[in-house]
């Protein structure tokens, strides 16, 4: 710390990011750089799926049952039009994977966003006000954390199936999954935010704001929130992986996204039916895509945790 009052021209924001400790930790770990590149490429490809996919797997007109079970292009019997081969319906696997990744990423991102919003709000008020509000929120969190995420999701899915008529269920499946994942993630966010809020609340800058006369909501929004965002970012990233995995698992189990809409989980489920015959590509490529996606997201989460808070688990 040597705060000389110099007026050097400030280096550009990009350079400062590159030169910061976080930037250094990023650069000095080739695996993290690779994970970052892979994650950006995959999420980008997923978002752009309608533009870059060779076929539209939803368009029944473009699907020809004659093409079914074509192996990948480089294998014997492959067709260059279908780079990774086709499934039992004749759908192009590459396109299905791109669209499937899109569904998976979307479900993951929206559910994490919902969970983070709810978790921040409840965690902030629990940590800031304490007392009965805190006890109430934390009891709900405790109770829900007793049950693993996947179990909560299964329960919600099960309940929704009993409450909704069967034909409506397929249309609403994606919302049910988003809700299920968000519900299973928010307690973790709330707990983290609450813990950080309690720490920040004890710091004197919060008391200083009170002395100035700021009300609790302004203090929470302006003072506490920016200081608890670091851990939230880490938790959100790690849980993006969890949510993508959760969706895939539910879809794989046949209780998630219906088979007519490709998600990585449903693709693996279909591929699994062909495990004993020779058509392994239908299993391997969606599976690898899912693993790579979640692995790179987790690597980024790990790096963020290292940078932001070495103690956070």
């Amino acid at each position: 710390m040597s705060p000389k009052m110099q007026n050097n021209p400030r280096p550009s924001l990009l350079y400062r990011m590159f030169d910061s400790d976080a930037g250094y930790k990023f650069r000095s770990s080739p695996i993290t750089v690779l994970a970052g590149v892979v994650a950006v490429l995959m999420i980008g490809a997923a978002i752009l799926a309608p533009l870059i996919a060779p076929f539209d797997p939803f368009n029944k007109a473009s699907i020809d049952l004659m093409n079914s079970l074509t192996p990948p292009a480089w294998q014997q019997g492959g067709n260059p039009a279908f780079l990774l081969g086709t499934d039992d319906q004749g759908r192009d696997l590459l396109s299905a994977i791109l669209y499937g990744t899109r569904t998976s990423v979307m479900v993951g991102a929206i559910s994490v966003l919902l969970a983070v919003t709810a978790g921040i709000f409840l965690g902030l008020i629990a940590g800031y006000f304490g007392g009965i509000v805190d006890a109430l929120v934390m009891r709900i969190v405790d109770i829900q954390m007793t049950f693993p995420a996947i179990m909560v999701a299964l329960m919600i899915d099960g309940v929704s199936r009993t409450l909704l008529p069967r034909d409506r269920h397929d249309d609403l499946a994606i919302f049910v999954i988003i809700l299920a994942m968000a519900l299973s993630i928010w307690p973790q966010v709330a707990r983290t935010v609450r813990a950080s809020t309690m720490v920040e609340r004890g710091r004197e800058y919060v008391q200083a704001a009170q002395v100035i006369g700021r009300g609790p909501w302004v203090i929470m929004a302006r003072h506490v929130l920016p200081n608890v965002m670091g851990p939230v970012l880490v938790i959100a990233t790690i849980n993006l992986g969890v949510a993508i995995l959760g969706e895939a698992t539910l879809s794989f189990l046949g209780v998630g996204i219906p088979a007519s809409e490709p998600s990585l989980g449903t693709l693996i489920r279909i591929g699994n039916n062909f495990i004993f015959s020779g058509e392994r590509w239908m299993l391997i490529y969606p599976g690898l895509t899912l693993a790579l996606l979640v692995l790179s997201v987790n690597l980024l989460g790990d790096w963020m945790r290292d940078v932001l808070d070495p103690k956070l688990r």
Partner: peptide
């Protein structure tokens, strides 16, 4: 361990079946 956390349980199971079972 990171791979263990990132790979979905069902995929690990399927791969084990594929390699050691099939």
């Amino acid at each position: 361990s990171l791979a263990g956390i990132s790979l979905p349980t069902f995929f690990i199971g399927i791969m084990l079946i594929l390699v050691f079972g099939v």
